[in-house]
């Protein structure tokens, strides 16, 4: 099994297509979308449709904190400012489909969640070793689980048990197949497909090769300038378009 892990698509169709094409070329056999399918970006309806067809083909699709858009903003964050626009772009059926998505899923030895495993609906940010440790601890009742994958934080990180008691954080280099022996437990945030925030404009995704026991974090180029232009044309907040161009 080669599992492609994609998260935080944020209604960015070209970024999603670029990642899917790359995963296909690398022989991905399974797909998991870890939530935040819409919000911020200019293609909510298209991205929802693409995810629905992936689901029909057997992909696991999870719900993130952006996936229940409302007709009027509930706050003042950038996400809140795009929620009403996103709401209008989606049909009722599409919105229902988004709300029906599960928060977590388990596939063999792999646990999938948008944010943290210990409280999936609270949308905590897995920003450090401590949060990662809580997530793993919450799953300790199931000894079968060897890998935990999430998104939400928009950067790629791998947490692992070193020689000591505490978890260690590791920042992966793109394209390197990292050996992840199931002998120990691993937790990774796979980065964001549609809105990278680490200063690199390329889309993020990860590929787990279960047979080879390797995890590879990928960075994929796509025409992010064009997507930014579309966002400006739709009158979405200018900051969000700038963000795509800066990768921050």
């Amino acid at each position: 099994m080669k599992l492609a892990l994609l998260s935080d698509l944020h209604a960015n169709l070209p970024a999603l297509e670029a990642c899917l094409a790359d995963a296909h070329a690398r022989g991905a056999t399974h797909h998991a979308i870890l939530g935040d399918i819409v919000g911020y970006g200019p293609h909510p309806a298209q991205v929802v449709e693409r995810c629905r067809s992936l689901q029909e083909a057997g992909a696991i699709i999870l719900r993130g904190n952006h996936d229940q858009p409302t007709s009027s903003p509930t706050g003042h964050s950038w996400g809140d400012l795009t929620t009403a626009w996103t709401y209008q772009q989606l049909s009722e059926q599409q919105r229902d489909w988004l709300s029906s998505l599960p928060l977590t899923a388990t596939l063999q030895s792999i646990f999938l969640v948008h944010a943290t495993a210990e409280a999936p609906a609270k949308w905590h940010y897995e920003l450090d070793e401590l949060m990662a440790e809580r997530s793993l601890l919450a799953l300790s009742h199931d000894p079968e689980i060897r890998y935990v994958f999430g998104g939400h934080v928009h950067h790629q990180s791998l947490y692992y048990q070193g020689n000591g008691r505490r978890l260690m954080q590791f920042t992966p280099r793109a394209g390197v197949a990292i050996p992840v022996s199931p002998h120990r437990r691993w937790l990774a945030t796979v980065g964001s497909v549609g809105q990278p925030r680490d200063g690199d404009t390329r889309a993020n995704y990860a590929l787990l090769d279960v047979m080879a026991k390797t995890l590879t974090f990928h960075r994929i180029s796509y025409d992010h300038r064009r997507v930014a232009q579309e966002m400006r044309a739709f009158d979405l907040p200018k900051v969000l378009a700038d963000r795509l161009e800066r990768g921050r």
Binding site: G162, N163, R166, M168, F170
Partner: peptide, 11 residues
């Protein structure tokens, strides 16, 4: 350098 250092520990 491209792999997590399994020998590393917090202390």
């Amino acid at each position: 350098a491209d792999y997590p250092d399994l020998m590393a520990e917090e202390f």
